[in-house]
Nucleic acid binder design. Structure first.
Length: 539
RNA sequence: GCCCUCGUAGCUCAGGGGAUAGAGCAACCGCCUCCUAAGCGGUAGGUCGCAGGUUCGAAUCCUGCCGAGGGCACCA
């Protein structure tokens, strides 16, 4: 790859100059300003001081030596600013990129080998089955799925999991609401007033028992949640029942294992875990309630047991939890609990998604203005819904204007990107109609691609492997969204200025441009697929 | 009080050590005898919350302050 080749040649030069100490690596980047060349390195700035050189002088020597023996594709090396070494390249480096992209194709281009088969479980959504998913608690579901896609492409063996909170107080409350509705009464204080509860009540013919009614309701609601997620193309490998943990020996055996850590003690009739040693600012947490409080294990105890199940019993190498920021308070305690079990807490990664808000104000089930996720999907479609939530970082508390989103559906950026794909398909269709076939890539003169639009497109395509790598390592699939918009923009520019077929387009150029369109298609298909957004052939 | 995230164009957000800070929307002006105008080009719009510090270089890293959101249960 060009970057490695340039870095190698710079490093060789530094060796020849007997620079000591040599830098660990030579950083090459593409300058934002075109006047600064095609590639640039700050290596002189970074190493000069320690090696006892003046940065500009060192940069000058590097440029001088490289100019005396130019690396492949390089037409000239210059110094600029305080000591940058800038490379000017012949367009052939980009033509090589084109060949790489179409040769690798959608299955192999931009497939970084990072995971190396490591198993990763990503747990996300995990909303309580006490009501349909609303826009707020469904906001980061596309994030979890896109992250799973990005990590899969990067070589991890990924499993998607939904932790179903199908036991405990919330379920009893839900059951109480159902029973009240069945009796024709209002739901009790703190219950669930939604219409879906009434629907459930009409179908429930079981005993007058809150837990029984609650589970019945949760099962039905879960079906609805699953359908909503599937309509977004999100399919979980596992729907893991909290009850299955709490009603088994899992909590008890986890409890015993915690005791063995020596961090467990009794106080005020309750059993506590000392979590301070593993970094919890709360220092100690109750894991088993006192008799006066019922004597049950706490949620934390169950959660530690659940994560023991993930990391020890099922043995995933790595577990990633995607939680809403409102669960921030649980992070340190859970990590401490996992560590107390003797499990390396580095294997558990918890990403907090900041709360989203609506331009119209706060949303909440109890405020009665919760907008169902399924409603939004019905309004603007699955692709737009996913794309929308994947444009921002999860660290950003996004503000969504639902009215604008609905009215501006046709101007949604997702269509801009999909339209680029449709245009490529349209070109291919026209080529087929005209009986134009693409010649094998190695028989096509790619050096005919010299238009700035063409070269910009190739520069962007070059970036995809780096983008996927960054999206994976930083757990930031929105980087793919940013990139795919950029690529679509480049393609629209090319489409507008560079006709692939036409009376004044020579057949050789048509061939080269057909391959460029194909490379663009590869980029769009890969990018959109990572986001879980469809790539339609026509719009 | 302590912890986490954020403060970038009128709005919604990218950029998260490099050289002149970007996009979309909104506003204004142009562009189809030709592969879908759901497109392309242009104009206008910024003290990157404030103040210090580190660095050859800071929107980016560190500290403090201000502002917004979230969190600090024998609830889940």
């Amino acid at each position: 790859m060009i970057r490695d080749a340039l870095a190698d040649s710079v490093l060789t030069t530094l060796r020849t100059l007997e620079i000591d100490p040599l830098p660990d690596s030579v950083h090459l980047e593409r300058p934002a300003n075109r006047e600064h060349g095609d590639w640039s390195t700050n290596v002189a700035l970074a190493t000069a001081k320690k090696a006892g050189w003046n940065p500009r002088e060192l940069a000058g020597r590097i440029a001088e030596m490289l100019n005396a023996d130019l690396p492949a594709h390089v037409t000239g090396v210059e110094i600029a600013g305080p000591g940058f070494v800038n490379f000017r390249l012949h367009d052939t480096w980009l033509h090589e990129v084109l060949a790489e992209v179409v040769t690798a194709g959608t299955t192999d281009y931009a497939r970084p080998h990072i995971g190396d088969g490591e198993t990763v479980q990503i747990e996300f959504v995990s909303a309580n089955p006490t009501g349909p998913l609303h826009v707020g608690n469904g906001w980061w579901c596309a994030y979890g799925d896109a992250l799973a896609r990005v990590m899969t492409r990067s070589g991890y063996a990924v499993s998607r999991e939904y932790y179903v909170n199908d036991t405990g107080g919330q379920i009893r409350k839900l059951g109480d609401s159902v029973l009240a509705r069945r009796r024709g009464e209002d739901v009790p204080e703190g219950g669930y007033p939604g219409d879906y509860v009434a629907d459930v009540a009409r179908r429930y013919d079981g005993p007058e028992d809150a837990t029984d009614a609650g589970r019945f309701a949760a099962d039905l609601i879960l079906v609805d949640i699953r359908e909503t997620l599937e309509s977004l193309g999100i399919v979980f490998d596992e729907w893991f029942s909290q009850a299955s943990i709490e009603e088994s020996e899992a909590v008890e055996s986890t409890f015993q294992q915690l005791r063995a850590s020596g961090l467990v003690f009794e106080r005020d009739g309750a059993t506590w875990l000392r979590t301070a040693d593993h970094g919890d600012p709360r220092e100690e947490r109750v894991i088993k309630k006192s008799a006066a409080e019922g004597g049950d294990y706490t949620y934390l105890a169950g959660d530690i047991a659940y994560h023991r199940n993930k990391l020890e019993i099922r043995g995933f190498d790595h577990a990633i939890n995607i939680w809403g920021a409102d669960h921030h308070g649980q992070v340190a305690s859970l990590r401490a609990g996992v560590a107390a079990l003797g499990i390396d807490p580095a294997r558990l990664e918890i990403r907090l998604g900041q709360m989203m808000s609506l331009a119209s104000g706060r949303m909440g089930k109890r405020l009665g203005n919760a907008v169902d996720l399924s409603e939004l999907i019905a309004d603007i479609g699955a692709d737009a819904t996913r794309f929308l939530s994947l444009t921002t970082s999860i660290d950003q508390s996004a503000t969504v204007d639902l009215d604008q989103v609905r009215s501006a559906t046709m101007e949604n950026p997702v269509f801009y990107v999909q339209y680029a794909h449709a245009r490529i398909c349209s070109i291919n269709k026209k080529a087929a109609d005209l009986g134009v076939e693409r010649a094998p890539i190695d028989e096509v003169d790619l050096s005919l691609l010299t238009h700035e639009r063409e070269l910009d497109l190739l520069r962007t395509l070059f970036e995809l492997p780096d983008v996927v790598t960054a999206a994976c390592v930083d757990r930031a699939p929105h980087k793919v969204t940013v990139w795919v918009r950029e690529l679509a923009g480049r393609f629209h520019g090319f489409y507008h200025d560079c006709y692939v077929m036409g009376d004044d387009v020579p057949p050789e150029l048509t061939q080269a441009r057909l391959w460029l369109a194909e490379a663009s298609r590869v980029g769009l298909v890969v990018g959109l697929d990572l986001l879980g957004v469809s790539a339609p052939e026509e719009m």
